[in-house]
Amino acid sequence: MTQQKEDRRIAPVGFVIAAGLLVLAAFVAKDAVGMGAVSSYAGIGPSAASWAVAAGLGLLAAGTLVSTLRGEVPTPEPSDRAAVLTIVAGIAAMIATISAGGGFIPAMALLFGLTARGFGRRALATDLGIGVVLGLIVYLGFTKLLALSLPQGPIERLF
């Protein structure tokens, strides 16, 4: 995370970020073009802010490019891709379970189990079990005590 002043190498990621900002700017600008002219006594309509943001993002893309070329963008430290992917898989599994009507408790169990695995735990079955218990407590607390509705699946309908 620390900026290494001596190490003034060009980090390729800077180009990616600059390009990304440019794409975002283009998106916002395109959206602004698509907005019909709305007559308003204010003199400016809803597209004015879009143009301002698009211009800002464009300038920042240019700024990022310059700063990359000057070697001011730090090269990130190594990261553990497998860990990140495992947790992302957990989040994706949670969303998929809820979308498919699998219910709140299994979704939370998957999220809990896979996140713990991402953090280096090997006992997936135990962690899934903990997730089920946690999800169950939360579910009962929410629906019974607080009268809030959470997504239901086969398990939740038992209560």
């Binding site: 947790i87 949670m94 709140f104 999220l111 189990g113 996140t115 991402g118 953090f119 903990i130 939360v138």
Partner: peptide, 19 residues
């Protein structure tokens, strides 16, 4: 323990959003 702590945080984060 860290794995459970962060797993719990994610569960609560998702729960808050769903609620």
């Amino acid at each position: 323990p860290q794995p459970w702590l962060y797993a719990g945080i994610l569960v609560f984060a998702a729960m808050g959003t769903i609620a």
